[in-house]
């Protein structure tokens, strides 16, 4: 891991102090019945294992194989995504933007870390980094090149900055050579980065 010390914490943080500070808060809230232990563990389990880019991948594969679904997804992303069971925090208003040979979309939250949790999970650290947030709106092509994606000059780049309510997801182009694959196999090809827009498939 980069620029962090033991346990992924910044080097100037005492791991023991932060652990105790959180234990103090958690134990007070447990005592008062404001949170419950099982509920906390379920939240962690959900976001570590059940919610993640594999959810978004199902949406993409469905859109690639069913034109009616794709149309719905691009017109009313929130409803089309909810129809597959993906709802919840940070998913109340989702807009899906489509990549084509001539238009490449990429998402960011310049102010903080807004991200469509129900379909992509929690954002990676780089998405929350000052460098990504500051630069992708100013010099998207050079940021994408750092990710190994060099766009043709004639390809238009659209950068979508999340607002307090709206979260974006990129519908990547279906990769060449995937014509014979079924929906499930297609979903396995879809990566997190392709749905953020920092990669092509």
């Amino acid at each position: 891991m980069s620029n962090t010390g033991r346990n992924g914490q910044p080097h100037d943080t005492e791991p023991k102090d932060i652990d105790l500070r959180i234990k103090a808060l958690e134990s007070i809230l447990l005592d008062k019945g404001l949170v419950d232990a099982q509920g906390l563990n379920e939240i962690i389990e959900t976001y570590e294992n059940r919610i993640g880019p594999h959810n978004g991948a199902q949406i993409v594969a469905r859109a690639w194989t069913k034109s009616d679904y794709k149309k719905w997804l691009l017109n009313d992303g929130t409803a089309a995504i909810a129809s597959l069971g993906f709802t919840g925090i940070e998913g109340a208003d989702v807009v899906v933007v489509e990549n084509t040979p001539n238009v490449h979309n990429v998402i960011v939250c310049t102010l903080c870390s807004c991200y469509p949790w129900p379909i992509l999970g929690l954002p990676p650290r780089w998405y929350k980094s000052a460098a990504y947030r500051a630069r992708v709106v100013m010099e998207p092509r050079s940021v994408l090149a750092e990710f190994g994606l060099v766009l043709e000059e004639q390809c238009e780049v659209r950068v979508w900055d999340s607002t307090a309510e709206v979260r974006y997801m990129v519908l990547p182009e279906r990769p060449p050579g995937s014509e014979g694959l079924d929906e499930k196999s297609l979903a396995e090809l879809v990566t997190r980065d392709s749905m953020i827009g920092v990669a092509r498939l």
């Binding site: 932060i18 976001y47 990676p124």
Partner: peptide, 18 residues
């Protein structure tokens, strides 16, 4: 440059999960 991490876990420490 944008700082990236290979095979990044969802959380980097137990306290982050809490």
């Amino acid at each position: 440059p944008v700082p990236r991490e290979a095979d990044e876990p969802v959380f980097h420490a137990e306290w982050e999960k809490r």
